[in-house]
Simulated assay, not measured.
Amino acid sequence: MTSHQSFSPDGRPRARALGIDLQGQPGPWNAITDVPGVAVGYQTLIAGDGPLRVGTGPVRTGVTAILPRGRAGLGRPCTAGRYSLNGNGEMTGSAWIDEVGQLSGPVTISNTHAIGASHTGTIQWINTTRPDLANEWLLPVCAETWDGYLNDINGGHVTPEIVCTALYSAQSGPLQEGSLGGGTGMNCYGFKGGNGTASRLIQFGEATYTVGVFLQANFGSRHELTIRGRRVGEQLQTPNPMETTDWGTSPNQTPAAPGGSGSVIVIIATDAPLDPLQCTAVSRRVPLGLARTGTTGSLFSGDLFLTFSTAPDHPSDTAFPHGAPTTAELVQTVRMPWNRMDSLYTAVVEAVEESVLNALLVNTDMTGRDTHFSPALPHDQLRTLLADK
């Protein structure tokens, strides 16, 4: 087992380092970036303390950028499909993915009220990076979860320029997790939440394919938290401020969500050759991995999932044609047989479960606006509970 599979780049323990018995074989980095070509970038915004002053702070937010083929592959489509477990959330560009089964640009994830800035910033970045693509129409994929418990969510702190910086910073390699980028102000199961990632290797004949998961975790009630079949949430002794029905006390205060609210965005990448229907089928398996960690899917949690495959690598066949075509050429594709998809489904369920645990474990306490507090999941207590058979 490599150190990156068990420890974050800054040395903090991930789920495997705590001895949690996890199934499946991860890739070298145990991250979505194990899928060749995938790059991830962050911009993290943390500033201020004390009472909320809209437009000033406190600020606990950011943006995450995922490039399916890196900067060099911008504009080359990936096969894609998505699934919504609960629609109390937003993922722009999904109607076009449903239409053609392709993803041709980056994915950004931020807070609920930063969708507009993420959309504008992505277009600005593409216009600068690949102006030839910007001359076509652009339908960026921008997703969100709600960080208003800790963050000045109405303050407009995520700007298009911040989004551009996150996109420029995207790179491959081991990934930091927890409270950074879009996950900075998020909560999960009544603990500090945020970003988590994991990967799995699968065999198909002589080929080895990778399935990578990245998620922004902001969901679940404390009493639901389950780790490897053990209900541990209520046995962990920390303050539980997210279990509240305090929906704000003044017009200037963003309401605090009751336990179970929030949302989760899950992005799945693979180099296994899949068609759009298969990508959608893979996305539909995400809830099975989330359920292993205890959630039952709150009405106020927007749970949106996107899968893309980097295996078909060819110029876009959806770009606007410049002039009349001089030749006719059919597009040929290769895909996994449906009767060999179970290994991918298993990999997704396992990697989603581990990604949630990593988001919880690679984390620290955070105090945000109006002294709202989100405690980190206590490692020592968890070790003791899991060791007590």
Rank of each mutant, 00 (worst) to 15 (best):
P174T: 00
Q25M: 15
L52K: 01
V35L: 14
G19N: 08
G121I: 02
I109H: 10
E354T: 08
V264R: 05
F305L: 07
P241A: 14
L139W: 15
N187V: 05
P378I: 14
I115T: 02
N151L: 08
V264M: 14
G87V: 02
I20H: 08
G93E: 07
G233P: 05
I123K: 15
L225G: 04
F191S: 02
A31E: 05
Q23H: 13
L167R: 06
G62Y: 12
A198E: 10
G302D: 05
E350H: 10
L299Y: 11
G248T: 01
A39Y: 06
P378R: 14
V362L: 08
V40A: 14
V211E: 08
G89N: 03
T296A: 05
L52V: 02
E354M: 10
H157S: 02
F214H: 07
T92I: 04
P287R: 07
G19S: 11
I153K: 04
M186K: 13
R76I: 13
E350Y: 15
L377D: 01
G75E: 14
R222V: 03
H4Y: 13
A95S: 11
S261V: 00
M242E: 06
T254R: 06
A39N: 03
E136R: 10
Q25V: 15
Y209E: 08
A376V: 04
I115P: 03
L385Y: 02
S8G: 08
V352Y: 13
T44W: 09
C78R: 09
P13Y: 06
